[in-house]
Simulated scan of single mutants.
Amino acid sequence: MSGYDDDHHAPQPWGPHDWHHGAPHNSYSPLFLSMGVAIFLFALAQAWSYGTYTPGHIPTILLGLAVVGFSLIIWWRQDFSFDGHYEPLSTGVPFRGIQIRKVAVWVFLMSEMMVFTSLFSTYMRYRLGIENCGTVFERGLFDPVTNPTGWQEGVAVTCFEPASHLIASSWWHLAPGAINTFALILSSFTIVQALRYAKMPDLDEEVRRKKVYRYLGSTWILAILFLTLKMVEWFIGFYVPEISAIGLHEHDIVSLVNEGYTINADHYQHHSYVDEATGAHMVANIQVSASLFYVTTGTHGAHVAGGIIGLSYMTLKAWKGLYTPANAVSIEYFGLYWHFVDLVWVLVFPFFYLY
């Protein structure tokens, strides 16, 4: 006897712990996963602070990663055999009758909305509250008589230098972010296609297996592309050779870090902040603006990285043909998260890359 009343309910509130049908999704793994992430992020912040690296925190970082890895293995082991026979439903108001996992995803996404709302509001507060570096430069070189409000050579001026001043300066600088926008939008389509084929009741099992794992794999590849281009934009840069046949000129695109756009840049110099008459360079303290850029885009990138981890597992499960119309709802739950990540980037891109 399996102990099931029907396909959606069980006699016990949490359902039977039956490995044949999969875990009842009352696992402690998400709790331990959260603890591992917290340990990792705390240790990482301690190990790298204002450009100073402290290797003594490496063991704590590894401990956090170990807890995360252990939690994921247990969680995936519990989910791997889940065939959709028992999907716990919420019994409390206002979510009565809705799958508990779907409620959990929506609650999680609401908390994520608060995270990114705080980042966006902080960005707008400082963007509008701190004078733009370009405006400061336009005031001209300091002169005690004719221009007492001007900037002085060698004296750092605290001002807001948006990353878009560098990124939107040319198409090639903007290319990684633009391609990433297209990649994430396309990945939202591929995850929907994976769900579509997984839910088809009359589809041949082998055809379903191939369709689902190919679309999930495509989503995984697009997510990897996103993070790769993010690293190119931040740290690596790239070279564009001259191809005269198509009118393409040579370009050496320098990364943001190599441009000096870093969170500890208190003596930042942009090549356009030079007084033509005297050759004097304006020096700026851009720690606030750079920190906001890296924290916001980095937080989004961390969510993409988390999605890659989940997609790795889901693609493996799909490759083994374990997604059926009965348990395809798991792809839907992940899709809710992935669409949220996509939507956030659609807001991040114009705010931080164009404005």
Rank of each mutant, 00 (worst) to 15 (best):
A265V: 05
L203P: 02
V348K: 04
I179Y: 10
G22N: 04
P162F: 01
P241M: 01
V288Q: 05
A156Y: 07
L354G: 08
I243V: 12
V240Y: 11
H251P: 07
S272G: 06
F238A: 08
A318L: 05
Y126F: 13
S29H: 13
A198N: 02
T117K: 04
Q99L: 13
F226Y: 13
T181S: 06
A290Q: 01
C159N: 00
E87M: 12
A318E: 01
T135A: 08
R77S: 14
K210C: 10
H249A: 14
F116V: 10
T315H: 01
W234F: 11
I74G: 05
L128R: 10
V67T: 10
F238H: 05
E131P: 06
T228I: 12
E112G: 15
T296N: 06
G97K: 14
L141F: 01
H9R: 06
A168W: 02
I39E: 09
N147H: 13
F340K: 08
Y333C: 00
G247W: 15
V157C: 09
R96E: 13
L41H: 10
Q152E: 13
W220F: 15
A245D: 14
N258H: 15
H339W: 07
M110S: 14
L184W: 03
V283Y: 02
S118D: 07
S90Q: 14
F182G: 11
T324C: 05
L225Y: 12
D275H: 01
F120K: 06
E332I: 00
Y353T: 02
L31Q: 07
